[in-house]
Design a protein around this nucleic acid. Structure first.
Lengths: 131, 131
DNA sequence: AGTAACAATGTTATAATATAACATTTATGA
DNA sequence: TCATAAATGTTATATTATAACATTGTTACT
């Protein structure tokens, strides 16, 4: 668990703490029901917190699963350029961090006359434990 | 427009023709309303056709947009391993075809002790026209 | 041709995911 | 301290997707 999450508002902290303690991606409505005892009562509140957390790079969305995961990379600069390994058996998600994919995809884009700004990469397969 | 789409059923052909003629990704409920005159009346019918078309590789889903696009690559072998350039301005989508990304991602996966099976890559930015 | 097996369809209902709209409260800074 | 912007609370609704089940169409084997 991280030290402090300064600058976050109450609802943002509640949602981020849940995701960090969970260690796995959660769905918005799971977050909602898991935070009701803390005072979050409506989907809007969850989505608003998620939007902000995504914006500042603390949370990423797994598009293919409609789920949300806390970023465990210190000083993650990925923001909205994210890359994951997703196990099809246990659903474990690992964020790729040192692969320099931004420049790789930037290069591919450039050759196709396309101006890269972000990417979303989801690699599916089997993790070490499940394969 | 393609020659014939043998083996496809009626609803599958209706949906695929719409997507092919459209040339851009469409949402399921847009497909529904655009095919009602052809007899498709319920979401289930659209989603069933899409599922099958995706399974055989004729259609891919753009996960981040909840939309569906006909594959314009002849003899596309990507099936569920797909890679797209997506223009953030005009929403134009280009499928990457010759980049050999499967083996690239397979390599990354292997080094992380992960058994690759598929991937979904969405690169966002600005196309030639919009940049 | 008859028929068993299976795939696709039609139909109704509902689940799951996400946003709109607006009044109120809280933080921030000149 | 006052103006402003941001975040919240709340209700309602929009959007995306699936469940369930009865019916029809296809296939292929005899």
């Amino acid at each position: 668990m991280k030290i402090t999450n300064q600058k976050l508002t109450r609802n943002q902290e509640i949602v981020l703490n849940l995701l960090e303690n969970s260690g796995e991606p959660l769905k918005a409505y799971t977050i909602l029901s898991d935070t009701q005892k803390k005072g979050i009562k409506a989907p809007t509140q969850v989505y608003r917190a998620l939007d902000k957390l995504i914006e500042i790079g603390k949370v990423h969305k797994i598009e293919s699963k409609n789920s949300y995961v806390a970023c465990n990379i210190s000083n993650c600069t990925a923001m909205t350029s994210t890359s994951f390994l997703i196990c099809e058996k246990c659903e474990k998600v690992t964020e790729l961090e040192k692969e320099n994919l931004k420049s790789f995809f930037g290069g591919i884009s450039e050759r196709l006359n396309f101006e890269y700004s972000d990417h979303n990469l989801e690699i599916f397969g089997f993790c070490n434990t499940c394969k």
